[in-house]
C-alpha cells in the first residue's frame, strides 16, 4: 500500500528535519540529563501517523458479499478480541452482517455494517468530554482514556455502530485495550493502518476469495478505491443525513 505520508515527505525533504526535530521533544530532555546520548537514538523511522491529506475509507460491493459468510465479523472479533458471549442485549459488536430483502423485487442482499467513519460524525458532536473524535485522516474513534461511559454517542449514531462494555475483561489484545464502562466501535484497525496494513475484515474477506471489501485512501485519486468510486455508482448509508460516510456500498 502507498503511504501518502511518506510520499509527501519525499517531495519536501526539509520537512523531515523539522518533524524529526519536533519528535525529539522527549529526547531533548534526555540529552540534558544524560550527556552523550544522541537525539537519533530515540528518533527512529518516521511513522505513518494520521495525515490530513488522507481519508481512509471502505467500499463494499454488496453483490460479492455472500449471505452465509461472516468471515469479516470473525476476522474483526479475533483481531480486536471482542466476543459475542451469548448475551445479544449487551455483547459488543464492532461489525455485524445485515440481510436485506427488497419487498417489491424479492432481491436479497447481505452486507457488513460497522462504524461508517462519517465526515460529520454525530457521535463526536454529542460527546461531552471530547473522547469521541475524528482523526486527521478521517478515522472516527473513542479515546477510552477520556470516555466516561455516558453513551450519548450510542444514541446519536444512526447506524447503531457503537457498543458499551458491561463486564470486567481480562487478557485483551495489547494493541486493542478494552475495559468496562467505556464505549467502543470499529477503529478501522487503526493499529494496522498506522503501520501500513489493512483492516482485519478486509483481509478476512479477501482470504475467502469473495473480495467484497476494498480499503484505501479516498483522497488519493490514484488509489484503487478512488478509481472504483469514480467509475461505478455507490451510496453511503443514510445519505439523507449528509454525514458523508467514509464507508460506501455499491450494488445496494
Amino acid at each position: 500500500m502507498k503511504l501518502p505520508a511518506l510520499k509527501t515527505m519525499a517531495k519536501v525533504p526539509d520537512q523531515i528535519n523539522r518533524r524529526d526535530f519536533l519528535k525529539s521533544g522527549g529526547a531533548a530532555v534526555t540529552l540534558t540529563l544524560a550527556p552523550g546520548i544522541t537525539v537519533m537514538a530515540f528518533g527512529g523511522e518516521a511513522s505513518a501517523a494520521a495525515n490530513p491529506a488522507t481519508r481512509w475509507g471502505l467500499l463494499i460491493d454488496v453483490n460479492k458479499c455472500a449471505k452465509d459468510c461472516d468471515a469479516c465479523v470473525t476476522g474483526c472479533s479475533v483481531e480486536n478480541g471482542w466476543k459475542m458471549g451469548g448475551n445479544p442485549e449487551t455483547d459488543a459488536q464492532w461489525i455485524r452482517k445485515v440481510d436485506l430483502t427488497n419487498k417489491q423485487t424479492g432481491r436479497e442482499v447481505s452486507m457488513p455494517m460497522m462504524c461508517q467513519h462519517c465526515e460529520e460524525p454525530p457521535c463526536v458532536d454529542v460527546c461531552p468530554t471530547g473522547a469521541s473524535f475524528k482523526r486527521a485522516d478521517g478515522i472516527v474513534l473513542v479515546d477510552k482514556h477520556t470516555c466516561i461511559g455516558c453513551r450519548y454517542c450510542m444514541m446519536a449514531c444512526p447506524f447503531k455502530a457503537r457498543s458499551f462494555i458491561h463486564e470486567d475483561l481480562e487478557d485483551q489484545k495489547s494493541y486493542a485495550p478494552r475495559g468496562k464502562g467505556t464505549v467502543e466501535s470499529c477503529t478501522l484497525c487503526v493499529h494496522r493502518v498506522d503501520e501500513g496494513g489493512i483492516p482485519a475484515c478486509v483481509e478476512a474477506c479477501d482470504a475467502t476469495g469473495h473480495g467484497a471489501m476494498m480499503f484505501g485512501d479516498l483522497k488519493d485519486p490514484t488509489s484503487d478505491i478512488a478509481i472504483a468510486l469514480a467509475s461505478y455508482a455507490s451510496v453511503g448509508l443514510r445519505d439523507d443525513l449528509r454525514l458523508n460516510t467514509g464507508v460506501r456500498y455499491s450494488n445496494l
Partner: peptide, 18 residues
C-alpha cells in the same frame, strides 16, 4: 505518548505501555 498514539496515530513512541 498515550495521547500522541491515540490522537495522532504515532506508533513510534518512546513510552508505550505495552
Amino acid at each position: 505518548d498515550r495521547d500522541d498514539t491515540m490522537r495522532n496515530g504515532n506508533r513510534d513512541i518512546d513510552y508505550s505501555l505495552k
